[in-house]
């Protein structure tokens, strides 16, 4: 029988991969992909709890749908920002976006 713990450990692994990509990647588009990975890990947590601890009300699934909608909006705005920065600085290297660096 599948346990809740399997899903939680899988979500933790996905979240940690997302954090690793978020910090180490140089390409700005890949940073956005890592953010999507982390949002998916959170969604998996919500869905696991919704199925195993609240199988009649399934409020976790409603939360997951809200997270999906907001993730889509975030991806659109984030990619537009990346495009604007690319036009401005002519690069997508995260290490060269240092206008606010002290």
């Amino acid at each position: 029988m599948l346990q809740l713990q399997y899903f939680l450990v899988l979500a933790a692994a996905l979240f940690c991969i997302g954090i690793y990509g978020l910090i180490t990647s140089r390409n700005a588009v890949r940073v956005l992909m890592s953010i999507e990975l982390m949002l998916n890990a959170v969604n998996l947590n919500l869905m696991g709890f919704s199925n195993y601890t609240d199988p009649t009300e399934i409020k976790g699934q409603v939360f997951t749908i809200f997270v999906i909608a907001i993730a889509a909006a975030e991806a659109a705005v984030g990619l537009a920002i990346v495009l604007a920065i690319y036009r401005n600085r002519d690069t997508v290297d995260m290490e060269q976006f240092n206008l606010l660096k002290w």
Partner: peptide, 12 residues
């Protein structure tokens, strides 16, 4: 989202 990311890769 994935198609949007592909378009962004093509634009950049």
């Amino acid at each position: 989202v994935n198609v949007l990311i592909l378009f962004a890769i093509m634009l950049v």
